[in-house]
Nucleic acid binder design. Sequence first.
DNA 1: TAGATTGTTAATCGATTAACAATC
DNA 2: TAGATTGTTAATCGATTAACAATC
Lengths: 208, 208
Amino acid sequence: MEKKVSESVINRLPRYYRYLDELIKEGVDRISSKTLSEKMGLTASQVRQDFNCFGGFGQQGYGYKVESLKESIGKILGIDRQRSAILIGAGNIGRAFALNITFEKRGFHLTGIFDNDPEKIGQTVGDIVVSDFEEVEKFIEENKPEMAIVAIPKAGVNQVVFRLKNAGIKAFLNFTHAEVEDAEDIVVENIHLGDSLMRLSYKMGEKI
Amino acid sequence: MEKKVSESVINRLPRYYRYLDELIKEGVDRISSKTLSEKMGLTASQVRQDFNCFGGFGQQGYGYKVESLKESIGKILGIDRQRSAILIGAGNIGRAFALNITFEKRGFHLTGIFDNDPEKIGQTVGDIVVSDFEEVEKFIEENKPEMAIVAIPKAGVNQVVFRLKNAGIKAFLNFTHAEVEDAEDIVVENIHLGDSLMRLSYKMGEKI
DNA sequence: TAGATTGTTAATCGATTAACAATC
DNA sequence: TAGATTGTTAATCGATTAACAATC
């Protein structure tokens, strides 16, 4: 884990993780870079280069042990341990996400849900009661969640991120249609559903 | 629109579109590549190169007209005209998406929702009644939707895509945690929520 | 006209691919 | 040992950045 790992590699890591998970379920316990690359539409070289960013998980002449490779990648991704999150916004997207990750779970644990709509406060999503957003700072201080999923109307996003950041949250999953203003000491991952739709629309025009 | 446009450029197009939309709302009607690039965290060169993939929308010594630039990009993205879509899967994610794009609308129009769960068939999402998935072929033939949003458990995705493809749908927005098997004559855009979460987790480990 | 900023060509940088020696 | 496949170095390709002539 010496030199900086490129964005492209990072983007592929979750996909490797998913494929390896599949392989385990299929009972495969060993795989070569060639076979894996064919399954995933990459080149064998690329697969080996990617893994070697983190220092060689394979065995010459043999290939990679699926189980331990998956475990290693999980560790790199930081999902070997439970991470706690809060959800801001109990609207459609927020609720769907909460119910979905609780189901799917992958080392993530939702500890609180917040909204500023009196209609929604007190409602239950999964097994969590929606709290007033005004209480979020107190909650963060007491429970120290590591990340926040922001699923609110786009107008409020930067104000909300600002408050959460000041309260101690450093990682944000942003579902709003707006960009989070860059700040040095936080990390943001965006899920722009509209962008995906536009990209699909573009591809339709190109290829069909 | 001569030579092939790279993936990187395509990925940036929706972002340009959103920023230009913001600018219009702020009443800005003219912008230089330099100013736009600073707002978006790119370089001025990159912005000009990107736009020139499609053949120069600017004016030397002046810059770009925001309104017409947005319109041009909208056209490139294929969102200048209404596109019709159906939703497969009326679970949490599917419903959230349906309600969300109806709200946000950007040239997309949802015409049908399908599920195979008897509990969900007959329910209403927005102003659309959920139909039995068994009727999807008939619906497609009659209504000719252009794309399908697939928000079902991952196990079924390839079978569902196969049926929809045979019925005439060529574009898919895939919300499942599985990959759609490559087929020559369709286009797929993936939204893997779990991947985004993993990437965020990775970034947390790196930067914080 | 002078200043500004594009469109476009050339230079640089980084990521992907190819090749091969190391070694299981 | 022989065969297979990695780890790693070198070659290629493509994307980003820099530079500048064209021109509004």
